[in-house]
């Protein structure tokens, strides 16, 4: 990944829900660094004048947005470290039971609102999260409009070939067309799981490409051209796509993309 001598890479899937959504991506990175130091896992460090732990976060989550699936890859060093025993007990043999134990253990080191759902070892040479994830799904709650109005606007967006939004970049106002990035846009929450909609809001769901750059929830709503207020934004999925197939970087059940294929690769090496 970065040419380090790391022996193992772990992928972690976690949620960011509640008050802690107001922390920034950088804040969350710092929270993880401190939690991992307390875990005594043998996290590998970069070399050089100002060494850093080798953590790599995927797609940034905007400050204020929640997520049901955030990811973090950690490079681990040799077992010859003070954290060896903790790490060995927890992940020496990463079967589903110990993976669950490690998830619980890491969650206990994190503040309220950050909760680990799954952990799995990633084979050496896997692509980085940043590189592999190419789309994500958002669930948005908006207020100040009726469901009918939102439905009409969604229809208009999907039928048009061009959805311009403005953004400021390096002090200059630019206009971007976000239409090519919109994979799907539907009324209603797409995920059936433990979701409680806020009273008086309309829910919509959108899947957008993250490359060449991510479309932010606010931009999506600007594209809808309705006079609405974003009450809550929640990223429900990130996707790694190959052709028509797509996988989450790590499912809640702890499965990696194309699990069998990756195992085969591992055996070959």
């Amino acid at each position: 990944m970065t040419g380090s001598s790391a022996e193992m890479q772990l992928r972690i899937r976690y949620t960011k829900l509640g008050k802690i959504r107001f922390t920034s991506q950088r804040d969350v990175a710092r929270l993880w660094e401190r939690a991992l130091r307390r875990s005594r896992l043998p996290v590998a460090w970069s070399k050089g004048f100002s060494p850093r732990p080798l953590l790599s976060f995927g797609l940034a989550l905007p400050t204020g947005a929640e997520s049901l699936g955030e990811y973090l890859d950690i490079e681990l060093d040799s077992w010859d470290s003070p954290g060896r025993e903790v790490a060995h007990d927890a992940i020496g043999i990463l079967d589903p039971v110990t993976s669950a134990a490690l998830s619980t253990f890491l969650s206990s080191l994190l503040p309220d609102g950050l909760s680990v759902q799954a952990v799995a070892p990633v084979p050496a040479g896997s692509g980085s999260l940043q590189h592999e994830v190419s789309s994500c799904t958002w669930e948005l709650e908006v207020a100040g409009v009726t469901e009918v109005q939102v439905a009409r606007q969604i229809d208009a967006v999907l039928r048009s070939s061009n959805v311009p939004v403005r953004r400021v970049r390096k002090g200059r106002m630019l206009e971007d067309d976000i239409r090519p990035a919109i994979r799907s846009l539907t009324l209603g929450a797409d995920c059936g799981r433990d979701h409680r909609g806020t009273e008086g809001t309309v829910a919509l769901s959108a899947t957008v490409a993250t490359k060449p750059r991510g479309v932010r929830p606010g931009e999506l709503l600007e594209g809808l051209e309705a006079d609405l207020v974003l009450v809550r934004a929640r990223r429900t999925h990130q996707w790694i796509e190959h052709g028509d197939a797509r996988w989450e970087p790590l499912s809640e059940a702890g499965e990696l993309p194309g699990e069998t294929g990756l195992h085969a690769q591992e055996r070959a090496s």
Binding site: K19, F22, T23, T63, P111, G113, V231
Partner: peptide, 18 residues
């Protein structure tokens, strides 16, 4: 909570420290 969407550095106001 509704105020925090539109202010700078909203994490200043949420507490939650260890």
């Amino acid at each position: 909570e509704p105020l925090l969407a539109n202010v700078s550095k909203p994490a200043r106001y949420i507490g939650g420290e260890m």
